[in-house]
Structures are given as structure tokens and as C-alpha cells.
């Protein structure tokens, strides 16, 4: 079982290491946001005390990295079926839960790796966390990635084709990002949005990252929304519930038949012969009726 989980993780990491474009895109995007949004908002947000807007934004960017990376990895499960490797997993003697767990932990690890690549920004932006705080940050990223990864697996289990990815990005990932307190403290959002803010795992992920990075630096207006233990509790709950749900959905054979095992689209009209009536007799020749 451990061997199998390890095998899935190794495979995902190997693939990740070989897809350069993906890694580059994953940290180019947050850098762009940091420069453009960070510079713009810094003018608008009065930064009293010791936290600059960019410092406040940094955990939000890690949140963005983790969100995109875990969702992409999880949704690649859908992509897998077109090329088949998922079938190796499906016929292996593993309970669905293990398969889903292995996929989720892989996407979480990839999320962590991508966030670590952007760690130098911590010092560039003038923050000086202790080793303990860094460890705490890593833990926060791992837990958040795992929760988001299991969320991604739930989505993946319901998705028919990766072509919906643009839709997922526009209607799920960006709203999750904007609602999550990545750009502004969650408490600033109007009341009718608060339930959504609370339902968004990214909110707690980012809040949990903000704790070690901004500890002791809170100004009046830019800080954290919840306590560490509350964030951890919520993220663990999210993970457990979503993972159970994802295994349930992936384990539903009816659904597997439709989603994961449909054959890759064949070129239209090729190969499939028209159906003839059952047991058509050998073609009678000429216009004469067959004579017995």
C-alpha cells in the first residue's frame, strides 16, 4: 500500500519535473501579480505600522500558487484517462481510497515545491522569519495544498473532459482566489459574501500562512482573520470530508464507466460499421429469393 502511494507520488513528481513549461508558468503568474497588483494597491492601501501591502500580499501569492498547482495536478487525473495511465491504477488491487489519497498527496507535494521556489521573495520583501516560523509556513502550505488537492479531486471526479478547464478556472478558481483574503483581509468583504469566504479552503490556507510570516508585525488594518488552531482545524476537516467524498465519487463504478473509461474519441464515422439486423442471412445474390 505504501509502495503504491509512493509509486503514484514518484510518477507525478517525475512528470512535473519534465514539464518545464508548467513550472515556469506557475511562478511567472504570481510574480506578475506581485509586481502589478502589489505596486498598484500599495498606493491605495494606507500602510501604517510595519507591514507593507506587498508583505501582506505574499501569503496570498503562495495561496495562488498552491491553488493553481494543486487544482491542475488533480484535474490532470481527467486528462490521464485519454492517455490511459489511470487505468493501470484502476485495475491494480488498491482500494479507491488509496488511489485518491495518493493522487491528492502528490498534488499537495507539487504545490509545496512550487511555493518553495518563491521563498526568496520573503527576504526580498524585507521579512525575516525565524526557522521555526519557516517550518510553520511549510506546514501551512502542505496542509492547505492537501485540502485544496482533495477539493480538486472532487471536481476531477465529476468532470468529463479537461476541456472544461477554462471554465473551472474562471468560475471556480478565480472566485476562490478573490474571496480568500489573498488581496485584502476577508473581513473587508460585504456581509453577503461572508458565507462564501468561510466556505473557501483557500481563506484558511492563506490565513494560516500569514501567521508565521507577519507575526508580531500586525498593523491595525492588515493582519490575520482567524487563530492558527482554528485554521488548522478547518483545513483538516475540509481534507477529511473532501477526500472521503472524492473516494466515494471515484469509487462509483457507474460513474467511472462514463468518465474515466470512455474510449478516446474516435475520428468521426471511422471504423464503426452500421448495425445490420441480427443474424442477417448471407447476402442473397441477384434478384432471386433464396431457395431452400
Amino acid at each position: 500500500m505504501i509502495g503504491a502511494i509512493e509509486a503514484v507520488v514518484v510518477r507525478e513528481l517525475t512528470r512535473f519535473a519534465r514539464q518545464r513549461g508548467r513550472a515556469v508558468a506557475s511562478f511567472a503568474r504570481p510574480l506578475l501579480w506581485l509586481v502589478v497588483i502589489g505596486a498598484g494597491f500599495e498606493k491605495l492601501v494606507p500602510t501604517e505600522g510595519t507591514v507593507s501591502y506587498k508583505q501582506f500580499l505574499l501569503p496570498g501569492l503562495y495561496g495562488m500558487v498552491v491553488l493553481f498547482s494543486t487544482m491542475l495536478t488533480a484535474l490532470a487525473t481527467v486528462h490521464d484517462r485519454e492517455f490511459g495511465p489511470i487505468r493501470m491504477l484502476l485495475v491494480a488491487p488498491l482500494p479507491r481510497f488509496v488511489t485518491v489519497f495518493a493522487k491528492t498527496i502528490s498534488s499537495a507535494l507539487i504545490g509545496v515545491i512550487q511555493a518553495i521556489v518563491l521563498f526568496p521573495l520573503i527576504w526580498i520583501l524585507g521579512l525575516h522569519p525565524s526557522v521555526g516560523a519557516l517550518a510553520e509556513l511549510l506546514g501551512a502550505i502542505l496542509l492547505g495544498s492537501f485540502a485544496l488537492g482533495s477539493f480538486g479531486m472532487v471536481i476531477a471526479s465529476r468532470l468529463r473532459s479537461i476541456e472544461n478547464f477554462a471554465g473551472i478556472m474562471n468560475f471556480l478558481m478565480f472566485p476562490m482566489f478573490f474571496l480568500s483574503s489573498a488581496l485584502y483581509p476577508a473581513s473587508l468583504l460585504p456581509g453577503f459574501l461572508q458565507p462564501l469566504v468561510r466556505a473557501d479552503p483557500l481563506t484558511y490556507t492563506i490565513d494560516l500562512m500569514r501567521h508565521p510570516l507577519l507575526r508580531g508585525l500586525y498593523p491595525g488594518n492588515l493582519g490575520t482573520d482567524y487563530t492558527v488552531s482554528f485554521d488548522v482545524l478547518v483545513l483538516v476537516l475540509f481534507s477529511v470530508v473532501l477526500l472521503a467524498l472524492a473516494s466515494l465519487l471515484f469509487g462509483e463504478e457507474e460513474h467511472l464507466g462514463r468518465i474515466l473509461l470512455v474510449e478516446p474519441p474516435r475520428p468521426r464515422g471511422s471504423r464503426r460499421l452500421p448495425r445490420l439486423p441480427r443474424r442477417a442471412p448471407a447476402l442473397p445474390v441477384g434478384d432471386a429469393a433464396p431457395s431452400d
Binding site: 517525475t14 512528470r15 492517455f83 490511459g84 495511465p85 493501470m88 485495475v91 478516446p264
Partner: peptide, 12 residues
Amino acid sequence: VVFQETTLDLDL
């Protein structure tokens, strides 16, 4: 099981 379509991971 050997499926009708390949199950190999092309990137590995």
C-alpha cells in the same frame, strides 16, 4: 489487463 488503448505514461 491489456487494454485496447495504451495505458502507458508517455512522459515516463
